[in-house]
Write a protein that binds this DNA or RNA. Structure first.
Length: 466
DNA sequence: AAGGCATGTCATGTG
DNA sequence: TACACATGACATGCC
């Protein structure tokens, strides 16, 4: 077992009591802290053992933290730059106020509360440093209290002063609690490892190919859309729309509702069915009255007529309104669109409508509902954009926070490596072989094996072993 | 006149 | 199956 690794100078550092002090060729008069480098797992040196492991982990961690490796690249990033307003983000960011004000106490804790789904940013840090709850790295530079106790003890030990000498023979160094070095074993060593109109038949949507006034005055009476010049004049008068706010506006009553024919209007039902009963009322005067009160147009179709810029000029009728007017649909577009399906069907039973009228009514209902749906859809889309912009601002603040932590972490790594180097120098200065020759830091390094022992290993052998 | 924007409409998918 | 709803795509009109 001792010869498992070849090319390694069989040195072993131990701080346990020396069972065979006579084998020592020298003494290292080091403080007890220094002898904490011993790796035998006695209660006394377990702490330093852990510290050593953490130092090794830090070295590995630094190697892991390659300069070109940006952990933030992994953060889902919404590429919404064109519509991002930095000013807007600032208003949605809790971070500029919360993070600086609180990170002195528990930076990661606060941060975690702000971004619970993102923690921990450096899980390996928690693992190595034992910083519970992800606390930690940002305070390492200014206050090393954030270190795991064993690591802290080692850092304290790095400031130790050495006394005496360490003797190495046959590769194993054994430190007394008083700093003596003992040779234990030389080879007990292990290596480190469009619009398609198909659904809307011409019968139902005769105006799909008609846009504009001249084209909208068909003469084909058989289609049911024939209009007289008087209708064209009436189309310039439209009622007020009782559109609800927040995309719930509906089709309005329209003058056509005042043209129920005697054949289409079963007056006997008008008194029992409230939606239809309203039709019994003279709609046109009311509509005209509303029109005078409110000429604005909410949620209506685009009109082929030029929009009115003066309140004194009536807003023209929508396309479906004109169609309904032309076909003498005996109820309002508002009812067509907004009535529940049962009520709507019941409404249809109240009248005798021909195929063209039925098709138009159903088309109006379909388009009307879809129009509201489209409005709601667009509203949600805008709300989503606002929400995503807010999230983007938070993520940017989070990125900046992590970048600061990363910088502090790297700075701490540099400090630790520097101190570790000093520690090695101090340790090596106390060691010499049987002939009294010192071991050079450039030629030898300390390595810990899985069994917990620390060995003085020639660097070329260590490289070969790796 | 071109482009952006708002809105209506259709087609399609989903529940 | 019918219906309501959501949504992408397209058309249209206005500025």
């Amino acid at each position: 077992m001792c010869s498992a690794v070849s090319g390694v100078l069989p040195l072993r550092i131990s701080c346990e009591g020396l069972p065979n002090p006579g084998r020592l060729h020298g003494e290292v008069s080091m403080s007890t802290n220094v002898t904490g480098l011993r790796t035998h797992r006695s209660p006394q040196n377990l702490e330093m053992d852990l510290a050593w492991q953490e130092l090794m982990a830090i070295t590995e961690l630094q190697e892991f933290e390659e300069p070109n490796e940006n952990p933030f690249e992994a953060i889902p990033y919404l590429s919404m730059e064109p519509m991002v307003s930095q000013g807007g983000f600032g208003m949605n960011q809790p971070q500029p106020e919360s993070i600086p004000a609180t990170c002195d106490a528990h930076p990661s804790g606060v941060y975690e509360s702000a971004y619970p789904e993102m923690m921990p940013p450096y899980p390996h840090m928690d693992m190595h440093y034992g910083l519970a709850g992800g606390h930690g790295s940002s305070r390492m530079l200014a206050n090393t209290q954030g270190f795991h106790p064993p690591l802290m003890s080692l850092l304290e030990h790095m400031n130790m002063t050495t006394r005496g000498h360490g003797i190495v023979k046959d590769g194993i160094i054994n430190f007394h609690s008083t700093g003596q070095i003992k040779q234990v074993c030389t080879d007990d060593l292990e290596s480190d490892s469009g619009l398609s109109l198909g659904s809307s038949p011409p019968l139902a949507s005769p105006e799909n190919a008609v846009h504009g006034v001249p084209a909208y005055l068909p003469t084909d009476i058989s289609t049911g859309y024939a209009e007289s010049e008087s209708i064209g004049e009436q189309c310039r008068l439209r009622p007020n729309l009782h559109g609800a706010v927040d995309y719930q506006q509906s089709y309005s009553s329209y003058p056509g509702a005042s043209f129920p024919t005697s054949a289409n209007m079963p007056s006997s039902n008008l008194h029992t069915y409230s939606p239809v009963a309203s039709i019994k009322q003279p709609v046109l005067p009311t509509a005209l009255h509303d029109l005078q009160l409110n000429s604005s147009r909410v949620g209506s179709y685009q009109s082929p007529y030029p929009k009115c810029k003066s309140s004194s000029v009536p807003v023209p009728l929508s396309r479906d309104e004109r169609r309904a007017l032309a076909l003498k649909i005996p109820f309002s577009l508002e009812k067509i669109v907004n009535l529940p399906v049962d009520d709507f069907n019941e409404l249809l039973t109240q009248f005798t409508l021909n195929d063209a009228q039925l098709a138009l009514v159903r088309d109006i209902r379909r388009r009307g509902k879809n129009k509201v749906a489209a409005q709601n859809c667009r509203k949600r889309k805008l709300e989503n954009i606002v929400h995503l912009e807010s999230e983007l601002g938070q993520l940017r603040a989070q990125r900046e926070h992590l970048a600061r932590e990363r910088l502090e972490f790297q700075q701490n790594i540099a400090i630790i490596k520097c101190r570790l180097s000093d520690l090695h120098t101090q340790v090596f200065s106390q060691l010499h072989d049987e002939e009294g020759h010192p071991y050079s830091v450039d030629e030898y390094s300390l390595q810990q094996t899985n069994d917990g022992n620390i060995y003085l290993v020639p660097r070329n052998a260590a490289l070969a072993g790796e």
